[in-house]
């Protein structure tokens, strides 16, 4: 059993764990394990996107209005941030493979920074939505409306619907046009879009946080020289698979959530 693959790394734990026969088997297992895990992640997001699709088939207008009320600029910036972080983590793998300790730390750190800035923007976006009152919920209020015969009546609608109307009317001309065509029932049902918006982006954020935690852990490991035996670059590699997957999810969320409505550059800056 004593092959050279069992050489001790830095006097710490052996590079090849006790139950593997050689380093190639271990690397292949680790890599394959992450791919299998990503399959479950695909199905996890697939489930909620399937629900999203079903609801959007029923309520295309509501989804369009809901998406129009979102902030597309922050989302666009975030897309580029995530793509850049995917790029930097790829460079980190290469650095680990080549045994470049400083390069590895640099690229891991930049990935962490880019991810954190993403989360910062995300928090700003959530806060903006919160300030605009775009939070679905059972709270009701009364508004002036007209019934079928044109007689003015008081109508009970959700607070969300009122806020949505307000947001759309003050956003830009296109948004106002969409809002004007909506009935109060449709405004109420736009909550459904926001349930999807918060739950999907929320899950994405949770995945980001987990990923950032792991990246910080790897940065610490890089600092103490865990990755000196370059065989261990495979751990950076599987981490990057996960990180790329988070990016992949965002690539699909961007058109489905943010770009499903009508946006214009008016009032962008």
């Amino acid at each position: 059993m004593a092959t050279n693959a069992h050489a001790e790394g830095e006097g710490r734990q052996p590079i090849v764990a006790h139950h593997f026969n050689n380093i190639r088997q271990q690397q292949a297992s680790v890599r394959f394990g992450m791919w299998v895990f990503l399959v479950t992640e695909v199905l996890f997001f697939g489930g909620v996107l399937c629900a999203y699709a079903a609801c959007r088939i029923w309520y295309p207008k509501e989804f369009e209005a809901g998406s129009t009320a979102l902030n597309p600029f922050i989302a666009s910036i975030n897309t580029f941030l995530l793509l850049s972080s995917s790029f930097t983590i790829t460079l980190a793998i290469r650095a680990a493979y080549k045994g470049q300790r400083d390069g590895l730390r640099l690229w891991l750190a930049s990935t962490i920074v880019l991810g954190t800035v993403f989360l910062g923007f995300k928090a700003k976006e959530y806060y903006g939505d919160y300030e605009e009152g775009l939070i679905p919920g059972p709270q009701k209020t009364l508004v002036d409306d007209v019934d079928a015969t044109g007689k003015p009546v008081l109508r009970e609608v959700s607070v969300f619907a009122v806020n949505l109307k307000h947001v759309l009317e003050h956003k830009n001309a296109k948004a106002k046009a969409i809002s004007d065509k909506m009935t109060w029932n449709e405004r109420d049902r736009t909550q459904m879009f926001f349930v999807f918006y918060y739950s999907i982006t929320g899950l994405h954020v949770i995945h980001m946080i987990v990923g950032l935690g792991l990246l910080v852990w790897q940065l610490i490991l890089a600092q103490i020289g865990f990755f000196e035996p370059t065989e261990r670059h495979v751990y950076i590699e599987v981490m990057s698979l996960y990180w790329h997957f988070v990016d992949l999810v965002w690539i699909f969320l961007f058109p489905l959530l943010y770009m499903a409505g009508h946006h214009s550059m008016d009032g962008a800056f």
């Binding site: 996890f44 489930g47 919920g137 909550q191 459904m192």
Partner: peptide, 17 residues
């Protein structure tokens, strides 16, 4: 897991999917 998540969201926040 996703179905249960959505169910919990619906139950906690009183929103409808």
């Amino acid at each position: 897991a996703m179905a249960v998540c959505l169910l919990a969201t619906e139950r906690i926040f009183g929103v409808g999917i």
